[in-house]
Each structure stands twice: as structure tokens, then as C-alpha cells.
Design a protein around this nucleic acid. Structure first.
Lengths: 212, 212
DNA sequence: GTCTATAGGAGGATAGAC
DNA sequence: GTCTATCCTCCTATAGAC
């Protein structure tokens, strides 16, 4: 993580953060290679050359964005899960985690969505840099699913790793079709949870209604 | 669909098809913008300028690839479904369709995978060109899922459109994690079908064993 | 820290010989 | 139909004034 400044956590974004936000939005929509430093600079309200007062290269920018993308969604999902009671059924843990992931991915923060969209097409060594954090996040979900399986909430015969990849796919692909006005993220999270979880003893709809 | 030649369906690929195959492979792995015409020409065994004897532009190449990608997977999925008895349970229809889609996506044909990987990042008017075919393919799956829901094979309360998007996500995201040696496509298709389908009256494992 | 100006290279596309 | 050579544009990155 490159950090040559006092970590812009002020109320005003600060130039460095503004650059990252502008770049993330462009990467999310146009992709990595199609977004030029001029585009980024222009969106951030400065000239291309000025970017180099804050970052060493385009790769440095995208590296930070990828890392922040994972960090953000990981923090939010963990917070959502830990907000629940330790004794909460896995059914609710999973639903809360899905909602947090979708909210982060589909919200106004462009870091996570940029990460998902461009990860496969950034230079390999940039990808490698962010792999450890990505793996940690995946491991967290894998553990969550294994607990679900232990409670018979997802089919026991299923490989948990494969199930977690399918779950990631269902969630991350929403970037391709989600439209803010047409869907409610809460409803989407409930639907996905219902798809992945086996039917509970009580009816699913009652369960969902209670969770709202 | 650009077609200035007698449709190279011969045993030897033909230059035009060889260009498309090389380009699809590069687009799949590196993305659209990061793949230059020089890269494509080199992979196809000729020089950059020669590409223009077969295509009007880079956009013409990628347009053909996107269209072929949808066409291919649509044909294979439809064939797999129609190979089954008309009275076959939806449970089997869906499993066959999933297997066909995954086989096409993860196999050696790079057109479908290239489509999935680069679709979001090609120029907008190129994207628009292939949208009708894509929508037709999506409509086919939506119909499949509605039939499943009518047979109570997926939960009735679920919006079929949303369910189909989640299913697409689970399938298409496999491009990001599937590794040929480590997974069997048949097993993956069974697992995904098991995830999406409600438990049958008989046990799932017996059902799966029968289908093999 | 931001600007202007530009170096140095790569990309898409074209012209014309063979 | 393929080649070489080249045009022109855009890109990342740097230099130096303010």
C-alpha cells in the first residue's frame, strides 16, 4: 500500500483520494486499458502530469484501487456478520453477508466494483500484488459456507469451495444486470439466500419477513 | 454478420477463421483494449496490415467474435435440451442445459469465453450490435427456469428473471476460477444444478447417480 | 503541487509493391 | 492476399517553469 501522505481521512476528499475515486469510477465503466491517465486527471479536475505528484505510475493507481476494493467489502461483510449474535443461525449469517457484499458492490463506492470488473485484465504482477487479500476474503466466505453445511443449511454432499465460487459468481455477476431503480438490494439478497439455502423447517417467506 | 467469403467451413481453418480464433483467444486472456492488431496478426501467422484483407477494422473482428460466442453456446444448449425427451422432468432439462453452457464456456472454443470476458468493455455500439442475440439467449433460459418453477423445482416465490441472472452469474464466473485439471465439468454442472434445484422427493445423490 | 510542453513509443489504419 | 513502410493519433511518463 503506497502511502506518502497523512492518510486523507479528512472531510474534504483530498487530491489523492479524489484521483482514486475518479479512476475507480472510470475503471468500473470503461475498463483498465481503455481508461487513460488523461481521462483520470480530467475527471479529478487536474492535468495528466499532476498525477505523478501522487502516484508513481498508472499501475500504482490501479494497485491501490484493487486493494481498497477488497478491503472495503471485506470490512463491511465482517462487520455485518459480527453485528449478529454469535448464536445466530447460519441462515441469517449468510443472508447478512450476502446483503453486505451486494450493497458494497452495487453501491456508490466504485472500488469493489472496479476490482471485480478489471481484475482479470490488469497486468499480471499487479494482480499478484492483490491476490493475498483476495484469498483471505475468499477464505472467510469458505468458512462461512462450511458452517452452513455443518448446520445442514446447504446440501452436505456439496464441495464447499465450489459452492463458494458459485455464490461469488451469482453475486459478482449482478454488476452486469443490476439497475438501481429496478431492483432492491435487500430483495436481491433475500432471493439469493433463498436460492442457496435449503428450505427451513418453517416457511422461507416467514423467515424472510422476520429478518426485515 | 460480415461475410465476404464462401463461409470457411472447410477442414483447414482458412485465414479468416484463423484470425478470429487467434483474436478470441487473446481477447479471452488479455482483454479487448490490451490486445493489439499486431498481437492478433502475429498469433494468426501474418502481418498487421494483412488483417484488413479480411476485416474492415478491429471492431469488425470483435463484433464477429461476440456474435459467434453467443451463437455457439446457444446452439449447444438448445441441442442438449432438445436431445432429451419432451416429457423429461425440468430437473434434467436444467442440468443438461447447465452442462452444455459450462462445457462451451470452459472448453477450447474461445468465442463464448471471450464474449463473457470482454463484453462490458468493448465500444458501446459494438455491444449494441450483439445485444439482440444475447437477449434471445437469456430469454431461452428464462423460459427454462419458468418451467422449473411451474414444476416446483425452484422456489415459487422467486422472481424467475432474477433467478436466471444468478444462474448466469454462477456459470459465467467459473471463467475466473475453473482450472482444467482440478475440476470435472460434469461434476460442476451437477453441483450447480443441486444448488439451484429444491430437494427432490427421492434423495439428490440418487438422482445425480442416475443421470450419469 | 500544478501547470505546459514534450519525449519516446505503441496503436489503428492506409498505400502501394509484389 | 500478403508484405513493407508509413501516417497520424493517443498513450505513459518526464522536465522544468511557476
Amino acid at each position: 500500500m503506497i502511502k506518502g501522505r497523512p492518510a486523507a481521512t479528512a472531510e474534504e476528499p483530498g487530491t489523492r483520494l479524489r484521483i482514486l475515486q475518479s479512476a475507480a469510477r472510470l475503471f468500473r465503466t470503461r475498463g483498465y486499458a481503455s481508461t487513460s491517465l488523461r481521462d483520470i486527471a480530467n475527471a479529478a479536475g487536474l492535468k495528466a502530469g499532476s498525477l505523478y505528484n501522487h502516484f508513481a505510475s498508472k499501475e500504482a493507481i490501479v494497485t491501490d484501487i484493487l486493494n481498497m476494493g477488497v478491503q472495503t467489502v471485506f470490512d463491511r461483510v465482517r462487520a455485518a456478520v459480527e453485528r449478529l449474535d454469535d448464536e445466530a443461525p447460519c441462515r441469517e449469517l449468510l443472508r447478512a453477508a450476502i446483503l453486505a457484499h451486494l450493497t458494497c458492490l452495487l453501491g456508490e463506492d466504485n472500488f469493489t466494483s472496479a476490482n471485480i470488473r478489471i481484475f482479470a485484465h490488469v497486468p499480471p504482477h499487479v494482480r499478484d500484488t492483490t491476490l493475498p487479500m483476495r484469498h483471505a476474503y475468499e477464505a472467510y466466505w469458505l468458512d462461512l459456507l462450511k458452517r452452513c453445511r455443518a448446520q445442514r443449511v446447504i446440501p452436505a454432499r456439496l464441495d464447499a469451495k465450489v459452492a463458494s465460487m458459485y455464490l461469488f459468481g451469482a453475486m459478482n455477476w449482478s454488476l452486469e444486470w443490476y439497475r438501481p431503480g429496478r431492483h432492491s438490494v435487500e430483495q436481491l439478497a433475500d432471493d439469493l439466500a433463498a436460492l442457496f439455502l435449503t428450505e427451513p423447517r418453517s416457511s422461507v417467506s416467514a423467515d424472510v419477513a422476520r429478518a426485515r
